[in-house]
Amino acid sequence: MATDQRKPLPFIANFAAGAIAGVSEILTFYPLDVVKTRMQLETGKGKHGMVGTLQSIIKEEGFGRLYRGLVPPLLLEAPKRATKFAANDFWGKTYMNLTGESKMTPQLSILTGCSAGATESFVVVPFELVKIKLQDKASTFAGPMDVVKTVIRKEGVLGLYNGMEATFWRHFWWNGGYFGCIYQVKAMMPKAETPQAQLLNNFISGSVGGFVGTLVNTPFDVVKSRIQGASKVPGVVPKYNWTYPALMTVMREEGPAALYKGFLPKVLRLAPGGGVLLLVVEFTLGVFRQALGPPYL
């Protein structure tokens, strides 16, 4: 059956493919995320670049520190990635129905990605908060549950959603860039005649999407790390509170370059990571199509 005529896979297939892809990606690239967070939490002029930060962590804290805070994102990756791809599928179909388009357009692909990112952000905030608290060099928490208990005791359950607004913008802009680029790059590439060529196309388009998404959303990620990394003091207004004012504060005090702290480890993770993500998703969906047979093929 022609690709544009085959029946869409059920929600559970998109959910499972996103989950498997997310876990694969995080196990491969997690240490870069720790390095990225450390660089973003460092105020003022950065003392270390990516390599210096990596060496400092290993030398002062041991190699295992590069995997500290792995449990929350690992638990999060399945629902997060699953939500990302399932929401992208849902919003894509919704916008195509609303506009009467029979195929995805560049404008709809960006709108769809942004909507999927906004949806995803509601799932990830508590997990991201716990991860940032554990990745901080000054962290004295015993583990994920210690963070959760401490935050709830001091700030209530809603404290776990500290940084919600910044997370919303981070995911909104990353997904818009990621999914928008995947569509554009795939359209520009020669048609894949073999499964190997299709895999290469997916990896290249996913990597380009990951790069552009990271370029667009890094300033929002820096602010999110600052908001979630800070300890709230009763009666004191946090220095970093709302996203756009915080962007201006960082730029005014540390210069525009500070908004791209951690960009190198972030892009080294998310560009090839975006490729790996799309590769695994497309491969897994292909397995589901084969297993379900016509009319999904």
Results as ranks from 00 to 15, higher is better:
Q5P: 03
K7L: 14
A16G: 00
I20N: 09
G22I: 02
S24K: 06
S24T: 09
E25A: 06
I26W: 10
F29Q: 01
Y30P: 00
P31D: 13
V35A: 05
V35Y: 03
K47S: 08
G49L: 04
M50Q: 02
V51N: 12
L54V: 04
E61M: 04
R65K: 01
L66Q: 09
G69N: 14
L70G: 03
P72Y: 10
P72G: 13
L76T: 04
E77N: 15
T99F: 13
G100E: 13
K103L: 07
M104A: 07
I110L: 05
T112W: 00
S115N: 02
S115C: 10
G117L: 01
E120D: 00
F122T: 01
F122Y: 01
V130F: 09
A138T: 15
P144V: 09
V148F: 05
T150K: 15
I152P: 07
E155W: 09
L160D: 12
N162D: 14
A166F: 08
H171V: 01
F172G: 12
W173D: 07
G176F: 01
Y178A: 08
Q184K: 13
A192T: 08
E193Y: 01
P195C: 10
A197R: 11
Q198I: 04
G209T: 11
T214V: 11
T214Q: 15
V216Y: 12
V223Q: 11
R226G: 06
I227N: 13
I227Q: 15
S231R: 15
V237S: 11
N241F: 15
T243S: 13
P245L: 12
A246D: 14
V250Q: 03
M251R: 05
A257E: 15
G262F: 01
R269I: 00
V276C: 05
V276G: 10
V280R: 04
E282V: 05
F288E: 06
L292T: 04
G293R: 05
P294I: 08
P295W: 13
